[in-house]
Design a protein around this nucleic acid. Structure first.
Ligand code: FES
Ligand code: FES
Lengths: 159, 159
DNA sequence: TTTAACTGATACTATATTGGTATCAATTAA
DNA sequence: TTAATTGATACCAATATAGTATCAGTTAAA
Protein backbone atom coordinates (compact mmCIF):
# COMPACT_ATOMS: atom_id res chain seq x y z
CA UNK A 1 0.00 0.00 0.00
CA UNK A 2 1.23 3.39 -0.83
CA UNK A 3 -1.02 5.99 0.65
CA UNK A 4 -4.43 4.55 1.17
CA UNK A 5 -4.89 5.38 4.77
CA UNK A 6 -8.30 6.82 5.19
CA UNK A 7 -9.85 5.39 2.08
CA UNK A 8 -11.09 8.82 1.19
CA UNK A 9 -9.69 12.19 0.42
CA UNK A 10 -11.64 15.04 1.88
CA UNK A 11 -12.47 18.04 -0.18
CA UNK A 12 -14.05 19.80 2.77
CA UNK A 13 -11.95 20.12 5.91
CA UNK A 14 -13.01 20.75 9.50
CA UNK A 15 -12.38 24.44 9.02
CA UNK A 16 -15.07 24.71 6.42
CA UNK A 17 -17.31 22.26 8.18
CA UNK A 18 -17.23 24.20 11.45
CA UNK A 19 -17.48 27.54 9.69
CA UNK A 20 -20.66 26.47 7.94
CA UNK A 21 -22.18 25.19 11.15
CA UNK A 22 -21.32 28.39 12.98
CA UNK A 23 -22.72 30.50 10.19
CA UNK A 24 -25.93 28.54 10.21
CA UNK A 25 -26.25 29.15 13.94
CA UNK A 26 -25.58 32.84 13.46
CA UNK A 27 -27.97 33.08 10.55
CA UNK A 28 -30.65 31.49 12.62
CA UNK A 29 -30.01 33.89 15.50
CA UNK A 30 -30.00 36.82 13.12
CA UNK A 31 -30.18 40.15 14.98
CA UNK A 32 -28.77 39.02 18.31
CA UNK A 33 -25.26 38.21 19.45
CA UNK A 34 -24.15 34.65 20.02
CA UNK A 35 -20.99 34.03 22.00
CA UNK A 36 -18.30 31.71 20.70
CA UNK A 37 -18.79 29.63 23.79
CA UNK A 38 -22.50 29.19 23.15
CA UNK A 39 -21.90 28.17 19.55
CA UNK A 40 -19.08 25.86 20.49
CA UNK A 41 -21.00 23.97 23.12
CA UNK A 42 -24.20 23.82 21.18
CA UNK A 43 -22.57 22.54 18.03
CA UNK A 44 -19.71 20.50 19.39
CA UNK A 45 -17.01 22.64 17.90
CA UNK A 46 -13.68 23.00 19.75
CA UNK A 47 -13.91 26.41 21.41
CA UNK A 48 -10.52 27.90 20.57
CA UNK A 49 -10.64 26.50 17.09
CA UNK A 50 -13.99 28.12 16.55
CA UNK A 51 -12.78 31.45 17.83
CA UNK A 52 -10.11 31.57 15.17
CA UNK A 53 -12.61 30.73 12.50
CA UNK A 54 -14.93 33.48 13.73
CA UNK A 55 -12.15 36.03 13.68
CA UNK A 56 -11.31 35.00 10.17
CA UNK A 57 -14.91 35.42 9.12
CA UNK A 58 -14.92 38.90 10.61
CA UNK A 59 -11.94 39.78 8.47
CA UNK A 60 -13.91 38.61 5.49
CA UNK A 61 -16.93 40.66 6.43
CA UNK A 62 -19.24 37.75 6.87
CA UNK A 63 -19.95 38.51 10.52
CA UNK A 64 -19.37 41.22 13.14
CA UNK A 65 -18.54 41.03 16.82
CA UNK A 66 -19.16 42.85 20.07
CA UNK A 67 -16.54 42.67 22.77
CA UNK A 68 -17.03 42.31 26.49
CA UNK A 69 -19.68 40.68 28.62
CA UNK A 70 -22.83 39.84 26.73
CA UNK A 71 -20.80 40.25 23.60
CA UNK A 72 -20.52 37.78 20.79
CA UNK A 73 -20.95 37.47 17.07
CA UNK A 74 -23.69 38.41 14.68
CA UNK A 75 -24.10 37.63 11.01
CA UNK A 76 -23.52 40.55 8.73
CA UNK A 77 -23.67 39.37 5.16
CA UNK A 78 -26.88 38.10 3.62
CA UNK A 79 -26.86 34.31 4.05
CA UNK A 80 -27.99 33.92 0.47
CA UNK A 81 -24.82 35.65 -0.63
CA UNK A 82 -22.51 33.36 1.31
CA UNK A 83 -21.57 30.36 -0.79
CA UNK A 84 -19.74 27.24 0.26
CA UNK A 85 -17.21 28.14 -2.42
CA UNK A 86 -16.37 31.33 -0.56
CA UNK A 87 -15.86 29.46 2.68
CA UNK A 88 -13.67 26.91 1.00
CA UNK A 89 -11.58 29.66 -0.45
CA UNK A 90 -11.26 31.41 2.89
CA UNK A 91 -10.35 28.32 4.86
CA UNK A 92 -8.74 26.00 2.40
CA UNK A 93 -7.59 28.15 -0.44
CA UNK A 94 -8.82 27.85 -3.98
CA UNK A 95 -9.81 24.43 -5.11
CA UNK A 96 -7.36 23.37 -7.75
CA UNK A 97 -7.31 19.95 -9.23
CA UNK A 98 -3.61 20.03 -9.99
CA UNK A 99 -1.09 22.79 -10.25
CA UNK A 100 -0.48 21.15 -13.59
CA UNK A 101 0.62 17.66 -13.49
CA UNK A 102 3.31 16.67 -16.00
CA UNK A 103 4.19 20.24 -16.75
CA UNK A 104 7.58 20.28 -18.50
CA UNK A 105 7.88 16.56 -18.91
CA UNK A 106 4.94 16.25 -21.14
CA UNK A 107 3.96 19.64 -22.33
CA UNK A 108 7.36 21.12 -22.74
CA UNK A 109 6.84 24.60 -24.02
CA UNK A 110 3.67 23.80 -25.81
CA UNK A 111 0.72 25.81 -24.67
CA UNK A 112 -1.79 23.34 -25.93
CA UNK A 113 -2.56 20.47 -23.64
CA UNK A 114 -5.74 18.51 -23.65
CA UNK A 115 -5.17 17.13 -20.22
CA UNK A 116 -4.84 20.59 -18.83
CA UNK A 117 -8.07 21.49 -20.48
CA UNK A 118 -9.76 18.51 -18.93
CA UNK A 119 -8.46 19.43 -15.53
CA UNK A 120 -9.50 23.02 -15.80
CA UNK A 121 -12.91 21.99 -16.97
CA UNK A 122 -13.34 19.72 -13.98
CA UNK A 123 -12.19 22.49 -11.70
CA UNK A 124 -14.84 24.77 -13.07
CA UNK A 125 -17.50 22.17 -12.63
CA UNK A 126 -16.64 21.73 -8.97
CA UNK A 127 -16.47 25.46 -8.46
CA UNK A 128 -19.85 26.00 -10.03
CA UNK A 129 -21.50 23.26 -8.08
CA UNK A 130 -20.32 24.62 -4.77
CA UNK A 131 -21.30 28.08 -5.86
CA UNK A 132 -24.91 27.01 -5.84
CA UNK A 133 -24.88 26.01 -2.20
CA UNK A 134 -25.39 29.06 0.05
CA UNK A 135 -25.84 29.41 3.79
CA UNK A 136 -29.31 30.74 3.12
CA UNK A 137 -30.24 27.68 1.13
CA UNK A 138 -28.87 25.34 3.76
CA UNK A 139 -30.71 27.20 6.48
CA UNK A 140 -33.99 26.89 4.68
CA UNK A 141 -33.37 23.21 4.04
CA UNK A 142 -32.56 22.77 7.68
CA UNK A 143 -35.66 24.56 8.91
CA UNK A 144 -37.76 22.72 6.41
CA UNK A 145 -36.37 19.51 7.81
CA UNK A 146 -37.25 20.35 11.38
CA UNK A 147 -40.56 22.06 10.81
CA UNK A 148 -42.66 21.59 7.73
CA UNK A 149 -42.29 19.04 4.96
CA UNK A 150 -43.23 16.01 7.07
CA UNK A 151 -41.85 13.32 4.82
CA UNK A 152 -40.38 12.95 1.42
CA UNK A 153 -40.93 10.06 -0.93
CA UNK A 154 -37.46 8.46 -0.76
CA UNK A 155 -36.47 8.05 2.90
CA UNK A 156 -32.90 6.99 2.08
CA UNK A 157 -31.96 4.93 5.04
CA UNK A 158 -28.29 5.30 4.11
CA UNK A 159 -25.84 6.77 6.63
CA UNK B 1 -5.12 33.65 8.72
CA UNK B 2 -6.27 30.22 9.58
CA UNK B 3 -5.02 27.75 7.08
CA UNK B 4 -4.29 29.48 3.83
CA UNK B 5 -0.82 28.28 3.26
CA UNK B 6 -0.52 27.19 -0.28
CA UNK B 7 -3.41 29.14 -1.68
CA UNK B 8 -4.70 26.02 -3.31
CA UNK B 9 -5.86 22.62 -2.29
CA UNK B 10 -4.71 19.86 -4.57
CA UNK B 11 -7.07 17.21 -5.74
CA UNK B 12 -4.32 15.30 -7.49
CA UNK B 13 -1.26 14.40 -5.42
CA UNK B 14 2.24 13.48 -6.55
CA UNK B 15 1.35 9.83 -6.32
CA UNK B 16 -1.23 10.12 -9.02
CA UNK B 17 0.81 12.58 -11.00
CA UNK B 18 3.85 10.29 -11.12
CA UNK B 19 1.73 7.22 -11.72
CA UNK B 20 0.14 8.79 -14.77
CA UNK B 21 3.48 9.84 -16.15
CA UNK B 22 4.94 6.40 -15.62
CA UNK B 23 1.95 4.76 -17.24
CA UNK B 24 2.22 7.02 -20.23
CA UNK B 25 5.86 6.03 -20.60
CA UNK B 26 4.96 2.37 -20.33
CA UNK B 27 2.06 2.71 -22.72
CA UNK B 28 4.34 4.33 -25.24
CA UNK B 29 6.91 1.56 -24.84
CA UNK B 30 4.21 -1.08 -25.14
CA UNK B 31 5.67 -4.57 -25.66
CA UNK B 32 9.09 -3.96 -24.13
CA UNK B 33 10.28 -3.66 -20.58
CA UNK B 34 11.25 -0.32 -19.10
CA UNK B 35 13.26 -0.24 -15.91
CA UNK B 36 12.20 1.92 -12.99
CA UNK B 37 15.52 3.67 -13.27
CA UNK B 38 14.96 4.57 -16.90
CA UNK B 39 11.49 5.92 -16.21
CA UNK B 40 12.67 7.80 -13.16
CA UNK B 41 15.52 9.57 -14.88
CA UNK B 42 13.64 10.27 -18.05
CA UNK B 43 10.62 11.71 -16.30
CA UNK B 44 12.18 13.28 -13.22
CA UNK B 45 10.45 11.05 -10.76
CA UNK B 46 12.21 10.15 -7.50
CA UNK B 47 13.48 6.62 -8.06
CA UNK B 48 12.45 4.90 -4.85
CA UNK B 49 9.16 6.69 -4.81
CA UNK B 50 8.44 5.50 -8.31
CA UNK B 51 9.33 1.94 -7.44
CA UNK B 52 6.65 1.85 -4.81
CA UNK B 53 4.12 3.23 -7.22
CA UNK B 54 5.04 0.63 -9.80
CA UNK B 55 4.70 -2.17 -7.30
CA UNK B 56 1.31 -0.86 -6.35
CA UNK B 57 0.27 -0.78 -9.98
CA UNK B 58 1.36 -4.39 -10.36
CA UNK B 59 -0.91 -5.32 -7.47
CA UNK B 60 -3.73 -3.63 -9.31
CA UNK B 61 -2.99 -5.46 -12.53
CA UNK B 62 -2.19 -2.38 -14.52
CA UNK B 63 1.35 -3.50 -15.30
CA UNK B 64 3.62 -6.52 -15.01
CA UNK B 65 7.29 -6.81 -14.17
CA UNK B 66 10.32 -8.92 -14.98
CA UNK B 67 13.01 -9.31 -12.36
CA UNK B 68 16.73 -9.37 -12.83
CA UNK B 69 19.07 -7.70 -15.28
CA UNK B 70 17.30 -6.32 -18.33
CA UNK B 71 14.12 -6.58 -16.35
CA UNK B 72 11.61 -3.86 -15.82
CA UNK B 73 7.96 -3.09 -16.20
CA UNK B 74 5.50 -3.46 -19.03
CA UNK B 75 1.96 -2.22 -19.36
CA UNK B 76 -0.63 -4.94 -19.07
CA UNK B 77 -4.05 -3.35 -19.09
CA UNK B 78 -5.42 -1.58 -22.15
CA UNK B 79 -4.54 2.11 -21.75
CA UNK B 80 -8.04 3.03 -22.82
CA UNK B 81 -9.35 1.13 -19.83
CA UNK B 82 -7.20 2.93 -17.30
CA UNK B 83 -8.95 6.01 -16.05
CA UNK B 84 -7.58 8.79 -13.92
CA UNK B 85 -10.36 7.95 -11.48
CA UNK B 86 -8.88 4.49 -10.98
CA UNK B 87 -5.46 5.93 -10.31
CA UNK B 88 -6.86 8.43 -7.85
CA UNK B 89 -8.64 5.63 -6.06
CA UNK B 90 -5.52 3.51 -5.93
CA UNK B 91 -3.22 6.25 -4.72
CA UNK B 92 -5.43 8.65 -2.87
CA UNK B 93 -8.49 6.68 -1.95
CA UNK B 94 -11.96 7.50 -3.12
CA UNK B 95 -12.66 11.13 -3.75
CA UNK B 96 -15.22 12.17 -1.21
CA UNK B 97 -16.29 15.74 -0.77
CA UNK B 98 -17.11 15.30 2.88
CA UNK B 99 -17.66 12.31 5.08
CA UNK B 100 -20.82 14.17 5.89
CA UNK B 101 -20.37 17.49 7.44
CA UNK B 102 -22.77 18.40 10.23
CA UNK B 103 -23.92 14.87 10.69
CA UNK B 104 -25.66 14.60 14.05
CA UNK B 105 -25.62 18.28 14.85
CA UNK B 106 -27.79 19.22 12.00
CA UNK B 107 -29.36 16.14 10.61
CA UNK B 108 -29.96 14.27 13.80
CA UNK B 109 -31.47 11.00 12.84
CA UNK B 110 -33.15 12.32 9.79
CA UNK B 111 -32.21 10.53 6.64
CA UNK B 112 -33.24 13.38 4.44
CA UNK B 113 -30.67 16.11 3.98
CA UNK B 114 -30.48 18.42 1.06
CA UNK B 115 -26.91 19.37 1.77
CA UNK B 116 -25.90 15.77 1.70
CA UNK B 117 -27.62 15.43 -1.61
CA UNK B 118 -25.77 18.42 -2.95
CA UNK B 119 -22.48 17.02 -1.78
CA UNK B 120 -23.13 13.62 -3.23
CA UNK B 121 -24.17 15.16 -6.49
CA UNK B 122 -20.94 17.12 -6.68
CA UNK B 123 -18.97 14.00 -5.86
CA UNK B 124 -20.57 12.20 -8.75
CA UNK B 125 -19.82 15.03 -11.11
CA UNK B 126 -16.14 14.94 -10.21
CA UNK B 127 -16.04 11.19 -10.46
CA UNK B 128 -17.66 11.19 -13.88
CA UNK B 129 -15.41 13.85 -15.23
CA UNK B 130 -12.26 12.01 -14.20
CA UNK B 131 -13.73 8.82 -15.54
CA UNK B 132 -13.57 10.27 -19.02
CA UNK B 133 -9.83 10.80 -18.90
CA UNK B 134 -7.94 7.62 -19.72
CA UNK B 135 -4.27 6.89 -20.20
CA UNK B 136 -5.04 6.02 -23.78
CA UNK B 137 -6.66 9.37 -24.40
CA UNK B 138 -3.80 11.22 -22.80
CA UNK B 139 -1.29 9.26 -24.82
CA UNK B 140 -3.02 10.12 -28.06
CA UNK B 141 -3.23 13.76 -27.06
CA UNK B 142 0.42 13.67 -26.22
CA UNK B 143 1.47 12.10 -29.47
CA UNK B 144 -0.77 14.43 -31.37
CA UNK B 145 1.03 17.27 -29.68
CA UNK B 146 4.43 16.08 -30.68
CA UNK B 147 3.72 14.76 -34.14
CA UNK B 148 0.71 15.77 -36.15
CA UNK B 149 -1.77 18.56 -35.51
CA UNK B 150 0.72 21.38 -36.14
CA UNK B 151 -1.18 24.19 -34.46
CA UNK B 152 -4.51 24.85 -32.93
CA UNK B 153 -6.42 28.08 -33.12
CA UNK B 154 -6.08 29.27 -29.53
CA UNK B 155 -2.43 29.15 -28.48
CA UNK B 156 -3.17 29.95 -24.82
CA UNK B 157 -0.01 31.52 -23.67
CA UNK B 158 -1.01 30.87 -20.07
CA UNK B 159 1.32 28.88 -17.84
C1' DT C 1 -15.07 50.05 40.83
C1' DT C 2 -14.40 45.49 40.70
C1' DT C 3 -15.39 41.31 38.52
C1' DA C 4 -16.79 37.96 35.31
C1' DA C 5 -17.93 37.25 30.58
C1' DC C 6 -16.45 38.24 26.54
C1' DT C 7 -13.38 39.13 22.01
C1' DG C 8 -8.50 40.17 19.72
C1' DA C 9 -4.33 38.38 18.75
C1' DT C 10 -1.07 35.01 18.53
C1' DA C 11 1.91 31.31 19.88
C1' DC C 12 2.12 26.62 20.68
C1' DT C 13 1.39 21.41 20.37
C1' DA C 14 -0.22 17.07 18.38
C1' DT C 15 -1.51 14.21 14.71
C1' DA C 16 -2.04 12.87 10.00
C1' DT C 17 -0.77 13.12 5.33
C1' DT C 18 2.36 13.60 1.75
C1' DG C 19 6.63 13.23 -0.28
C1' DG C 20 10.94 11.09 -0.35
C1' DT C 21 15.03 7.82 1.11
C1' DA C 22 17.39 3.64 2.47
C1' DT C 23 18.20 -1.21 2.93
C1' DC C 24 18.47 -5.88 1.96
C1' DA C 25 17.02 -10.09 -0.09
C1' DA C 26 15.91 -12.43 -4.41
C1' DT C 27 16.20 -12.89 -9.46
C1' DT C 28 18.27 -13.01 -13.95
C1' DA C 29 21.01 -11.77 -18.27
C1' DA C 30 25.46 -11.56 -19.62
C1' DT D 1 30.19 -14.65 -10.77
C1' DT D 2 28.59 -10.21 -11.16
C1' DA D 3 25.95 -6.24 -12.19
C1' DA D 4 21.36 -4.81 -13.13
C1' DT D 5 17.16 -5.10 -11.62
C1' DT D 6 12.64 -5.99 -8.90
C1' DG D 7 10.20 -7.35 -4.14
C1' DA D 8 9.39 -5.93 0.20
C1' DT D 9 9.51 -2.93 3.81
C1' DA D 10 11.17 0.25 7.13
C1' DC D 11 12.43 4.74 7.82
C1' DC D 12 12.72 9.90 7.59
C1' DA D 13 11.35 14.81 6.38
C1' DA D 14 8.20 18.30 5.21
C1' DT D 15 3.79 20.01 5.26
C1' DA D 16 -1.07 20.29 6.40
C1' DT D 17 -4.69 19.71 9.54
C1' DA D 18 -6.67 19.82 13.97
C1' DG D 19 -6.70 21.41 18.39
C1' DT D 20 -4.91 24.03 22.82
C1' DA D 21 -3.14 27.77 25.63
C1' DT D 22 -2.22 32.39 27.01
C1' DC D 23 -2.66 37.06 27.79
C1' DA D 24 -4.23 41.61 26.86
C1' DG D 25 -8.20 44.50 26.17
C1' DT D 26 -13.37 45.54 26.41
C1' DT D 27 -17.82 45.81 28.52
C1' DA D 28 -22.16 44.74 31.18
C1' DA D 29 -23.50 44.32 35.45
C1' DA D 30 -23.17 43.36 40.51
S1 FES E 1 0.46 19.08 -18.32
FE1 FES E 1 0.82 21.15 -18.00
S2 FES E 1 -0.05 22.17 -19.68
FE2 FES E 1 -0.33 20.09 -20.01
S1 FES F 1 -25.29 16.55 7.13
FE1 FES F 1 -25.22 14.41 7.22
S2 FES F 1 -27.07 13.74 6.33
FE2 FES F 1 -27.13 15.87 6.31
Amino acid sequence: MVSIKQLTMKVLTKNTDYAVRALLALAKAKGSYLSAKAIATEHDIPYQFLRRLLQEMIRHNLIISKEGAQGGFMIKKDPDEITVTQLIEIFQGKVQVSECMFRKQICGNRARCVLRHEIMRIENVVQNEFEKVTIGKLLRDLEGTHQAAPSISTPESAE
